[in-house]
């Protein structure tokens, strides 16, 4: 039964994940933490960290991980397939339409609103991970350094997570 619920949950996420995988994170959190309690908010931060560190789209990684934690391999298959299903449906239906009307001014305004919403969704994800993931001054400092390095020095994000993890191993013993 959990497998079916996972399928429905990620179908909902897939239909409303405007702005891509990272913008889907707060929707995923809502389903797997708030609504179904398959994961704690601590485990959700672990999900985000591991999804970002692993190769491949962060959204697919997050769905696979959440599904696995909730209901093993069948759960991960259900979550990942459900997450991809809206893409398959919408590309068929919306493609011709959107492309024909995208110069239309109403569609342009709509897209502007969706763009703002996508940035807002990623902002919600950021605040949520900051709340759970940063608990002491060392973590604040680490976050500050990473923030600076990725924005101004364009250091590879995966490398930054790995280094921060190693720093964590040394400090939190």
């Amino acid at each position: 039964m959990i497998v079916w619920e996972l399928f429905l949950a990620f179908l909902r996420v897939g239909f409303f994940a405007f702005g891509g995988g990272m913008a889907a994170l707060p929707l995923i959190e809502r389903e797997v933490v708030t609504r179904h309690a398959w994961l704690t908010s601590q485990e959700f931060v672990e999900l985000v960290a591991l999804s970002e560190m692993s190769p491949g789209p962060i959204g697919i990684n997050a769905a696979t991980f959440a599904g696995y934690r909730a209901a093993g391999v069948p759960g991960s298959a259900a979550a990942t397939m459900a997450f991809c299903l809206p893409s398959l449906l919408l590309v068929g239906v919306a493609f011709g339409l959107l492309d024909r009307f995208r110069k239309h001014s109403m569609v342009a305004s709509l897209l502007r609103g969706l763009r703002a919403a996508a940035v807002a969704l990623i902002g919600v994800a950021a605040v949520s991970v900051v709340r759970t993931g940063i608990g002491d001054w060392f973590a604040v400092a680490l976050a500050g350094v990473v923030f600076f390095l990725v924005l101004s020095k364009k250091v590879d994000p995966v490398l930054l997570i790995l280094l921060a993890g190693v720093a964590g191993m040394a400090v939190y013993r």
Binding site: E46, A49, T132, A143, V150, A164, R173
Partner: peptide
Amino acid sequence: GFMRGAAPAVAALIAAAV
């Protein structure tokens, strides 16, 4: 320990993405 260190890094990366 690794995850406790990785979490603030991920938070910073998402904030940077915003």
